[in-house]
Design a binder for these strands. Structure first.
Lengths: 341, 341
DNA sequence: ACTAAAATTTAACGCGCGTAAAGTTTTTAT
DNA sequence: ATAAAAACTTTACGCGCGTTAAATTTTAGT
């Protein structure tokens, strides 16, 4: 089997002119059935594929989609990225996945490199607080972009995310209704803007319910949230800083660390008799089901956030890359009752 | 600030000819300091970057590196991918990350698409048992490829992975030495060839130690290992199939499910007094530290596997894409003693 | 200041493909 | 069968850049 170098050569081998072959690859139905048959016959004999990057260079509209997440080693983003990729593929697009690995510099470089790809559109979950807003703004001005997960106000043609108030109000209300009002457990300097919204929502809801909010801020930076949560929990557990038997963690990864600390200290967690503490959280991380005890949490509407993100991006693309006005779509959380609270 | 379309335009604006500008971007030191200054001055005023894909099309050797993993939503691969990406970036290469999402079809398509990228080399962790061997063989014939994690015999210029015998022998010997010999807990039809090697190693080591091997095979397909492990554990726990108080799980994700099942059933796991069961495993998954109890496991030498993989790939690239003969490098495991066994 | 070496410019081609225009062949319709 | 429509071929240019060869300018060395 000869190796075909380019379309020219393949066209010659198949006995069809190059422009027609080019047309065929754009849309097989756009050529006569007889010529289509001849091309596909040759295709079986020589296995040739057009160079997608050369194609992209010349097409005004490509089928490339950029997906950028802040930290792919976080299973939450890995899971969402998986869904986004598969949706893009199903829609006939070609996804390119990038992780900023928690670094502003890398986020900027990814966006720079993405421009060369001439993507039809980009799904961007920005780093958040440490993002270079002006760089992202410039990027969005050139490439149709939908933001998801972390909102950066005014940036991108649309934002799709989860309603943090919905998360926290459900968890706080549930814990209060079935026991004592929770303290709120979070990192002192969270990287993600959602964390701030969750804290505010907690304070709001506690006020409304007539309880005094109690926010516990723990030290730690980076993306090793479980370890940060564990260390923080060991500290406050040792200092007996909790005012009630209820704790609401800002997110599941902190909660995973919190539960590990409780187990180490021999503190029984759960809603059953004999448990000293109840721990709930937010996100419904892929592993939340497998903590001990399993984690009661407010679940992201993963499917809808991901589905709406790609839908919105496709609309944006069809609409020529611009929307009348920027929209923000927030999906409510779904309370998942497990054993920890 | 005007938007520059191409190098031609930028060259005109900077007052330098295009070939010289091209040279500059290839190596800034290859031009005279004065012209370099003029270019960089213009660079600040106009922010232009060469289109990387157009560059790749014309260069014989690109700086692109493809990284392909079987399932990115598995934190093990996410973590390894992160390390590989960062190593490539540090070496001045541009990594492109792809996940096969557990599907042979997707793995093949990724490899097809990768050829258009003209990568200098590819780091491939194949799906394993369900990989299309002939497709991978064809790919490796055209693109310098280093396999990692899963070995497919004879494919790729080299293989870097972990020594499964080292994993299992350490865990089995440890458990035997400090208590009873373990049963081996695994999926009936594992997707990954490492699983088979681990089972064989278990049988070998048990034989050598003079114990009768006891392999427990559980049902389940796909990549939701935790849930498969949990269901399987609930079943065998209910049927009291264990012959000793020791269990060695084939991998950590199964073990995470196993521990969750034990917790649900009120079975205390650990090496302390009062514990009914000891559970150990292999991999040192990023979350193994946070299970309850924390998981005793044989750790991959993540850093070395990843580092050696990229090193080997770079050597391969420098060597023109071919090695005298295919090498297989296996790194031993490091036993991590935690609370579960 | 003068010459050889080094760097730059100009001109042109190539990479693999999209695409448009003009001419030719095939198909469809009556 | 015949004209019109549709599809195809030929020719040629463009995309953004690498690269090479010859001509020109700049720099280094003495």
């Amino acid at each position: 089997m000869t190796k075909i170098k380019n379309m020219e050569e393949f066209a010659a081998l198949s006995g069809i002119s190059r422009p027609t072959v080019s047309k065929y690859f754009h849309d097989p139905d756009s050529v006569r059935p007889t010529t289509r048959a001849r091309i596909e016959e040759a295709l079986e004999r020589f296995d040739y594929r057009p160079n997608i990057y050369a194609v992209n260079q010349n097409r005004k509209l490509t089928k490339n989609i950029g997906i950028v997440v802040p930290y792919l080693a976080d299973p939450f983003f890995a899971e969402i990225a998986r869904y986004l990729e598969q949706s893009c593929i199903a829609a006939g697009y070609r996804p390119f996945l990038f992780s900023s690995h928690g670094e502003q510099k890398l986020e900027n470089e990814i966006l720079d490199g993405l421009q060369s790809l001439k993507p039809a559109g980009v799904l961007l979950a920005p780093l958040g607080r440490i993002s270079d807003k002006s760089a992202i703004e410039k990027f969005c001005a050139r490439v149709p972009t939908v933001l998801f997960d972390s909102n950066l106000d005014g940036l991108g043609a649309a934002f799709i995310g989860s309603d943090n108030f919905s998360f926290v109000s459900q968890t706080v209300e549930y814990m209060t209704r079935t026991g004592e009002p929770p303290s709120f457990f979070e990192m002192r300097t969270p990287a993600n803007p959602n964390a701030n919204k969750r804290r505010k929502a907690y304070v709001d809801v506690m006020d409304r319910l007539g309880f005094e909010p109690h926010v516990i801020k723990i030290e730690g930076t980076g993306w090793a949230f479980e370890e940060i949560g564990r260390k923080g929990a060991l500290k406050i557990l040792g200092e007996r800083k909790l005012r009630t038997d209820s704790v609401l963690c800002s997110n599941d990864r902190l909660a995973i660390g919190f539960l590990a600390a409780c187990f180490e200290e021999g503190i029984r967690v759960g809603r059953k008799d004999g448990c000293a503490l109840r721990v709930a959280s937010n996100d419904d991380h892929p592993f939340a089901k497998f903590t001990c005890p399993s984690l009661t949490t407010a679940a992201h509407d993963y499917d809808n956030v991901a589905a709406r993100s790609v839908e919105t991006l496709f609309e944006l693309i069809e609409n020529g890359g611009k929307f009348e006005k920027r929209t923000e779509t927030l999906f409510p959380a779904r309370l998942v009752l497990r054993e920890s609270a």
